[in-house]
Amino acid sequence: MLTAEEIQEIKTETAHYPKREAGCIDALKIVQRHRGWVSDESVRDIAEYLGMSATDVDSIATFYNLIFRRPVGRHVVMVCDSVSCWIMGYDRVKKHLGERLGIDHGQTTSDDRFTMLPIVCLGCCDHAPAMMVDSDLHSDLNPQKIDSALEKYK
């Protein structure tokens, strides 16, 4: 069930749309903000709330990179693997993260602290290689910078 708080946020953030369904992506993001990810149950709840079919909501949820349909760790590390970062050393960044966290893309550490995912160019190509952890951008990455960046996320 959607919480009263979630429903209130969905209402406020989508009030300006002329159609209820238009709020679907916002609703998915709001639920994810509260729960970390979007479960099958949440998909059904959002569908019911917006008067849509669960299949339609799921087809939208799975379309977008930033909607997680599987559980993620407390923090999500999104590593840019687009071209400028690739030129500037994405492979080294990925290798270091992989060794340090003991996971590959799409996996979560056993203590549920980090999930690692690839991401499209973060618009930070002049300071490549780059990654995001949750909503923070980290750039000009090297092993030391990666290590000290990760320390901040418990």
Binding site: Y17, I25, L28, S59, F63, Y64, N65
Partner: peptide, 22 residues
Amino acid sequence: LSGGRYICGDETGLLNALEGKR
């Protein structure tokens, strides 16, 4: 704020995204 997908940059893809669709 977009849900994230390159095709949202295409103007007609963008309009569908703004309407809450794929």
